[in-house]
Simulated scan of single mutants.
Amino acid sequence: MTLTRLIIQIPCLNEADDLPATLAALPRQIPGIDAIEILVIDDGSHDDTSEVARRWGVHHVVRHRRNRGLANAFQSGLDMCLVAGADIIVNTDADGQYEGADIAALVQPILRGEADIVIGDRGVGKNAHFGPIKRRLQRMGSSVVRKLSGTDITDAVSGFRAISREAAQRLTITTEFSYTTDMLIQAGRKRMAITSVPVRTHPATRPSRLFTSIPRFISQTGVTIVRAYTTYNALRVFVGTGMLLTLAGLLPIVRFMWFYVNGDGSGHIQSLVIGGSLLVLGALVAVMGMLADLITANRKLLEATLHKVRRLEERLAQDDGMAEACEKEGEAADILPLVKRKREPARRSR
């Protein structure tokens, strides 16, 4: 019988004080889940976050020697969860913002086969723990992400989310700031099934470590959204920009032609020069769009290859674990040769 394994990953940066309460609030049993494990990603903390995690019985700890950023920590967690054999991955914060008990509701759409990704909706429009400016910014940002990703998610920057194994294998976070919007746009363009469930939140216990000010958060998030959207819609972005430049170039040319027809063209040569320059620039941008579209097609091939490589690595890791278990149990004589035969072709190819 196939067991369903859930791994709850927690990216951390100097969370030694808040981590114990977060770990204590996590569920130990969920209907439909056979095994629950916890993974802590220590993103270059200067305190003893990793030691606190081990003392609390965390099953897996990934430590970065220096801080790489939240997005990189999230991707490291996904990679480790896949190697550890997770069927479902839940990402939550270490500061206790989210209610740990709501993980049971978060994973249900995946268990029922209805979704690949489930976002915890904090109800940003009415959340009492958010200030009026934050609520407004959250709604605006989520609206933009919904349109760009083709999804119907009302809380795009919520870090409380569940991901199926298949979805995690197909995701590769490329931004260096925050994974939330990049992941949604990427998943939406890959036609993954995404839904949301309402979750509870707690008051913030400290300022965010992801950003130092709201303007910085807006600028960084904006860059991430534009970059992610352009990655998967390069032709539309570049050709659209080229068309705008072309239309802008036609205006001064039409102006010059008007004066020229009326016998006053000699004094408006600058309009012709500006218009011609904009037309050339528009054509160049459109050509760049075609090249970018070819690069996007190549990226899809690389992602498909990466997907297969990840599955192969996970299978080899599972085979290694099976071999070690057989040796410990004294069953290597019957099972170990089969595992070795499965591994040999892959190892020779490397």
Rank of each mutant, 00 (worst) to 15 (best):
R299D: 12
I153H: 06
I225E: 00
S208D: 00
A25R: 00
L19Y: 02
S50L: 05
E313T: 15
E324G: 06
A292R: 14
F256Y: 13
L278T: 00
L137F: 07
A84D: 14
Y260R: 00
Q29T: 15
D43C: 02
T49L: 02
Q29G: 11
D334F: 08
P11G: 02
L39G: 11
L302C: 09
H202I: 08
R255G: 06
S158P: 04
I36M: 13
E329A: 15
F256A: 02
W258N: 11
E314D: 15
D93Q: 11
S142H: 11
A162I: 02
V157P: 13
S76W: 01
R311E: 14
G159M: 08
K340A: 08
Y260S: 09
S45L: 08
G222K: 07
A101P: 03
L294N: 14
P207C: 07
P31F: 02
I8N: 09
S158C: 04
Q318M: 12
I103E: 00
I10F: 01
L70K: 01
G120D: 08
R350V: 08
G222V: 05
T4R: 15
R236D: 10
F217H: 06
H60W: 14
V118W: 00
N233R: 05
T212K: 10
P203M: 01
L306C: 04
A325N: 12
E303W: 01
A94L: 01
Q108T: 10
K342D: 09
R55C: 03
S149V: 09
H129C: 02
Q270V: 04
A292M: 13
I214Q: 03
V61Y: 09
Q318W: 09
K190G: 13
D334G: 08
V90Q: 03
V40L: 07
G282S: 07
A53F: 09
E303K: 00
E15A: 08
N127P: 11
W56I: 06
P27M: 04
G222T: 03
T154C: 12
R28M: 03
I133A: 07
G141R: 14
L301Y: 11
A94G: 07
D182Y: 09
G113Q: 15
R68W: 04
R63G: 05
T195E: 03
C326M: 13
S271F: 12
V273F: 07
A323G: 10
G289L: 07
W258H: 12
D319N: 07
I173Y: 03
L78R: 13
N127D: 14
A325L: 13
M290S: 07
I8C: 09
V52T: 14
G44Q: 08
S266T: 08
S143Q: 12
L23D: 02
E37N: 06
H46W: 05
R311S: 13
D43V: 00
R136I: 12
T221P: 06
A156M: 09
V261A: 15
L148G: 06
V280P: 03
K328N: 13
V52S: 09
R122A: 11
A24V: 08
